[in-house]
Simulated scan of single mutants.
Amino acid sequence: MAKRPVLISMGDPAGIGPEIVWRALRERPALRREVVVVGDMACLRRAARLGVVPDSAERGLVLAELEEPAEWAGLPPGAVGVWQAGDALVPPAWGQVSAAAGRAAAAAIRQGTQAALDGRARALVTAPIHKEALAAAGEPYPGHTELLQALAARHQGVPAAALPVRMMLSAPGLATVLVSIHVSLREALAAVTTDGVLETIRITDAHFRRAGLAQPRVAVAGLNPHAGEGGLFGREEIEAIAPAVRAARAQGIAASGPHPPDTVFMRARQGAFDVVVAMYHDQGLIPVKLLGLEHGVNTTLGLPFVRTSPDHGTAFDIAGSGRASADSLLAAIDAALAAAPEGGGLTS
């Protein structure tokens, strides 16, 4: 058994998050020796009953409530450690946005993040949240990435801007890192600056070097059709993106571009590049999600700990039905375990 667990936050309890956590632990029982689930005990117990065949061995699945993650090391074989986050909750209705569900999801994220920052956990894997529920609960952050960045910056005693982070979405054969995340398209265009693109390239290069690549091949996508066609379709490539690529190369990074965004992802999947830096959210995420949500992983780059997540949402339309797939969550857990090996310290 590892010295410290990987924590899994339950996600929005009205969505499929709690369900896919238990499905993952049923499909891969060995993971019970690696993880602790962070969330509301009543909501997690309800989800644990979904999809269980009557009179099967799993009807006796043992959920052991923990006071601290370290207690997980003493659990009996096959038991699942659950760490209550926040006040006990009456399980909300499946598939409905509510402030109560948003608060419970945020409490699990905050508690798991603090444990990771304190070194009490190897990594944090986050099940899906619902942004409307988070907002209804009064959370000032639009999603996981921004909340995690704020918590980590506060822990280090610096403003959030001093701890730049980036979202990376990956599936077998393709990884893409975003210059901007959850902002309007108009704001995303304004974020395409030389400094912003260069910082993204640096964070991307550092992540892949830590993962074992001596010289990651970083392809930088253009913003405009055909990467601007020499200024005919816009000047962002000339005035912002190309200077960032040149600066990165001067620093020893194997960056190239700006490449036409309609072909660069295909080329990366064919093996020409290790990762693509995309200029905005949908430009980078659509190609990855076309490869299938079942194997997609969201990784936050730049944090002082490992954080991964499945590449899909709360799926309110099927929540509570027992039909949700755990494949993407399993991929996220595997990515966390690989990035935070047993006995390792904090990893960014």
Rank of each mutant, 00 (worst) to 15 (best):
P5C: 06
M10H: 13
G15M: 10
G15D: 09
I20V: 15
R32G: 07
R45I: 03
A48S: 15
G60E: 09
L63S: 10
L75E: 09
G78F: 05
G78Q: 05
L89T: 04
V90G: 02
P91V: 06
V97T: 13
S98V: 01
A100S: 14
T113V: 12
Q114N: 02
A115Y: 10
L124D: 12
G138C: 11
P140L: 04
Y141I: 00
A150G: 07
A153V: 10
V165C: 15
M168F: 02
S170E: 15
P172T: 03
S180C: 14
I181N: 00
I203Y: 00
D205R: 06
H207V: 01
P216Q: 14
G222R: 13
E229G: 11
R235C: 02
E237T: 11
A240G: 00
I241C: 11
A244M: 08
A248V: 12
A250W: 04
V264G: 13
Q270I: 00
F273N: 12
V277K: 11
M279C: 14
M279K: 05
Y280W: 09
Q283R: 09
G284R: 13
E294C: 00
V297Q: 01
L303M: 07
F305A: 04
V306R: 06
G313C: 02
G313M: 00
F316Q: 11
D317H: 06
A319W: 09
G322L: 08
S328Q: 12
S328V: 09
A335T: 13
A336G: 13
A340G: 06
A340M: 12
A340Q: 08
G343A: 12
G344F: 06
